[in-house]
Amino acid sequence: MAIRRISSEERLTTSFPLQSYAFERSPANAAATQETRQYLPYNEGNVTLVAEESDTVVAAASAIPMRQNIRGTVFPMAGIAGVATHPLARRQGHVRRLLTQLLGEMRDEGHAATALYPFRPSFYERFGYVGFPKPRTVTFSPADLNHFLRLDLPGEVTWQRIKDGYDTYRDFIHRSLAERHGFAAFPDYRAARQRDSDEEWLVMAVVDGETVGAVTYRIEDHAGDLLAGDLLTTGPVGRALLLQFFARHVDQVARVTTTVSANESPELWATDFAAHTEAKISFPGSSAPMARILSMEALHGIAAGPGRVTIEVVDDPFIAGTYLLNGEGGRLEVTAERAATPAATLTAAGISALVYGVLDPVEVALRGFGAVPDAAATALRGIFPPRTPRLFASF
């Protein structure tokens, strides 16, 4: 089996057909094939590898060069997508070899982390990935937002097609990237598909000239559903302005659906607010995101709590080694310690869980992601306080 990086145009005859079979209606008709060609520019900067046997492409995987906030510092991050195998070549180890090479190339090109949406989390856990909380979907009647119509809120909302407000919306995405742990943003060439398709409305909340909230949406039908995307806000006022806008649709739509962070509490938005909030997990179609660290050294300087401990990362081709972690100055110091005796042993999934703040050190051990004695757990808990990452981008 040979693995090679393909050019942009080659995707039409190599990776795209495999992805179409794996993730879309199949077989594709002529119209779908034409749409695939139109999708090509939004993949232009991706790194795509294919595995070939006897001149036949048997597997493909792509990495999208993105950026992600990890505890307040923005890093290059590889979003893994389009992992697909020929139906006659499955369960033969092709994806394992392909993904290992792709992650290695992305690490060597400076990407400190990687994230994906798994078809099966246990498969990617073996590659060092750890799960993120899944964002919540909230469904409610606009009639239950009547309280917001009586509020005299500061600021205003703007309303336009996404194509017209795209640049301002993109600026707000970049601001969120700089401020929110776990947040990830597409590169410009990929994000532009949302602008070019122009299939959504855009509402932005503005106070004193500053954007404090944004959401995209479309309306399915009269007396039907208003389907909104991520409800992105900087605080309660921005959220209230957007909810007030939804309330004005009480005589037009029956339900509003939007997506919020896992640490959001929609039940507290208003009194007598009847909402259905869920995070549905199913495989292979509705999974929570996963992420992992590709470079320990790159983490030097991220925000950290007090603590000092030596750890060993094992069984990983990218970050295996012994490291002294010191957060005493409020910023993480990472020092390679070849001869030191580690106080804890962690897998790549274990250290990734701590860095992203999704598991306590005790949970890391219980999940089989390492051996963490009590003293080391206390130090690691201090260095990496719990956080709720919000990936945002879907790929």
Rank of each mutant, 00 (worst) to 15 (best):
P317R: 04
T258C: 13
F16N: 14
M77D: 13
P121A: 08
T378S: 11
I162C: 08
L40R: 10
G224P: 04
L232D: 05
A270D: 14
S15N: 13
L18V: 10
H222S: 13
V50Q: 05
M1R: 10
G104W: 08
A184W: 02
E199T: 15
V47Y: 08
V314F: 08
P187W: 11
I80D: 05
E200H: 12
D374M: 13
L227Q: 07
A60L: 07
T234M: 08
A375S: 13
I64H: 00
V130H: 03
A89N: 08
A113D: 07
V253P: 06
T259D: 03
H249E: 02
A89S: 14
I162F: 09
A298M: 05
V206D: 04
E210K: 13
A205R: 01
N29L: 04
E220V: 10
F273A: 05
L49P: 01
F119D: 05
M66V: 05
R248T: 10
A63K: 02
R37C: 09
M1A: 13
V253N: 03
W201K: 07
E312S: 12
M106F: 04
G370Q: 03
E297W: 02
F392M: 10
Q101P: 01
A191F: 12
T100Q: 11
L366M: 15
R331F: 10
F392G: 03
E179K: 11
A22F: 06
F172V: 00
E52N: 07
T234E: 12
F283K: 07
A81V: 13
E10D: 14
Y169P: 01
V372F: 05
Q101E: 14
P187L: 11
G155C: 04
F75P: 00
G82A: 06
E220S: 12
R367A: 15
A2R: 14
